[in-house]
Write a protein that binds this DNA or RNA. Structure first.
Lengths: 195, 195, 195, 195
DNA sequence: GATGAATGAGCGTTCATTCAT
DNA sequence: TATGAATGAACGCTCATTCAT
């Protein structure tokens, strides 16, 4: 399918997309060059080594590729929401909708994030999306829309809940799963009603 | 430490315990026989092959070993609780307490559950602990202590929340993390207050 | 030739001896496992990996093997010499005689010494044989048999002269070469005659 | 630094000079096109293949480049010497002075000479510089300045002694090393004093 | 019960080089 | 003149497993 002497950027994209597929299917460490070659109809593993410095670089780029797509898919929805609670709901729904639309992307992302070796002084106590959620909760508390809880714990919990939906097997009914999650985290975050 | 011609059962236990350590440290797929041999001071990978039919069998037994320990650690606490809500809190607190006491066991369990290939007709819609939680929620709803929600989604979410604590980095403050989780899932499950 | 399930020590020796041959023939870095396998009639490169931790370990052992043989060949001759000058001559003659008898050993030794990566804090300013020569010259000067020169420079020069004979192509006439070297270093080291 | 569409000769020189650096640093066989490309800021290994028919041709040209520089550095000094013994001293001092001034050039030269595969019917019994030394010794013997010894052995020995200084580690004190070598080979070559 | 010896398959990576502009 | 793209072969090494005691 891919003709010889293809433009490099197309080749790179093709390889990355194939890598995402393979990672989603067999997992991070099992996604060998050989499997990517087979799946992508490439001529040799050397082609991957040619376009990417090493395996880790390929995976890093694959993650960036997926994140970019997810952002594009989710951002408008979240930005359109007025209240923080609505943003939270939009985040959950957008995430699981993306997961339904691009299951391989989502699964691959979870795999790569979980396994990509962190740089030395990485210091990231939690990846980007967790920190983004922490900020959202801070905003919600400042706006009086949310009760006071440990933002980090809540953020980690929500991320885990979403990732579990991605890894889970009942991918048939993701819309329902999303609705349930929205309700769970609405109840968990709203200011408590006075008796 | 392990003398030659040891009793078989001790050998098995020694290998399993070592495997748990290694899995916790380097992950499921990276826990090779060679690493277990080195860590456990064994003479050769052949010893593992001798006691376990294959790698998967070893991992399955390792999981059983860990689950058994976790059960022993958590069960009394849960059984002592009177209401379902108390049982739920006891489950969360017990889990994270076990995680604090036996971090390697807990991490290894998560790793193995996440990676152990399922048998062909396995059909397990979720592993044992998820199904146990589903039952707990059913009881809570029957007793009128909990609102009506999708038991499976809630169970998967709680399991993911706990596992995330295991994998997470702020293992320093697990007691606090536990308290926060208890509150989150209390709010998410209680019957809603009427205005 | 080599039967299966051979005793390990024999296998190791066979591999080492083959490695020495190959290194002597094609050089340190070109002596690949594959070439050793072919030359030694081994079943697979895996056999080498099985018996030696890594390539460097194999080469280190190969060097030790050669050095041991050289020692056994040269030591009696040197020990028998009475004066330091006689010891020096015995060293040169013994070296080149060993070189004539075991050319591959000698060439391989030079190759390995020149290319074996040194350990971190190795600190060896010069390998063992150079330091042995330095001591010999110190003795000679103390005994009044040798003039005062820089021992290290003389030692390095002599080692290089011998190694050059090993690498050289006129291996036909090594005995003559040896005689000439003896004379060169006798003249270079003896106390100068007063006019 | 090198702009595109550079004049070909400059490109060639740039590549050769870079190759010399890399060979000096990592050795002949480890000096890969990739490393030269990186060190020299070239765009692709293809550039080297374009300018040189193959790796061996590049190395041959690199050697010629270095030899030319060494000649330019050493020749005046030797030519200025009156007696053969003075020429010999000038040769040694000039060599080690060049080595001190252009260490990479000297080291690279030793590496290439030692590893460059000889052409089929090459028959060179020793490279150019050795034959030059043989001639010098012949002259010295004809002039009665030198005793009778095997010219070839002496030449090979001197070359090895100088090369060892290049490879050695005490590059700090090359001037002293040079003086010692001069003395060694003066004593080794002069006509013997009658008692 | 236990182990030393051996193995085929696979891994990511590097090599100098050729193809196609 | 110059270069991006691609490649087959080889590299040392690790894998879980089987053979033979």
């Amino acid at each position: 399918m891919p003709p010889t002497q293809q433009r490099a950027v197309e080749r790179r994209t093709h390889i990355i997309a194939t890598a995402v597929d393979v990672v989603a299917e067999v997992g991070y460490h099992q996604a060998s060059f050989a499997k990517i070659v087979e799946r992508g109809g490439l001529s040799s593993p050397r082609l991957i080594s040619y376009h990417f410095t090493n395996r880790e670089a390929l995976m890093t780029e694959a993650l960036a590729y997926v994140v970019e797509q997810a952002q594009a898919h989710m951002h408008p929805r979240i930005a359109a929401a007025m209240t923080v609670q609505e943003k939270l709901a939009a985040y959950i729904l957008g995430n699981l909708d993306f997961l339904e639309t691009n299951p391989t992307c989502a699964i691959a992302a979870v795999q790569i994030v979980a396994n990509l070796p962190r740089a030395e002084g990485d210091q990231t106590q939690g990846d980007t999306s967790v920190r983004l959620l922490e900020q959202l909760f801070t905003d919600g508390q400042a706006a009086g829309e949310m009760r006071h809880f440990d933002n980090r714990v809540m953020a980690v919990t929500l991320r885990a809940a979403i990732d579990a939906a991605a890894t889970g097997i009942d991918r048939a009914n993701l819309a329902h799963h999303a609705e349930e999650l929205v309700e769970i985290f609405r109840l968990a975050t709203t200011v408590e009603v006075q008796s």
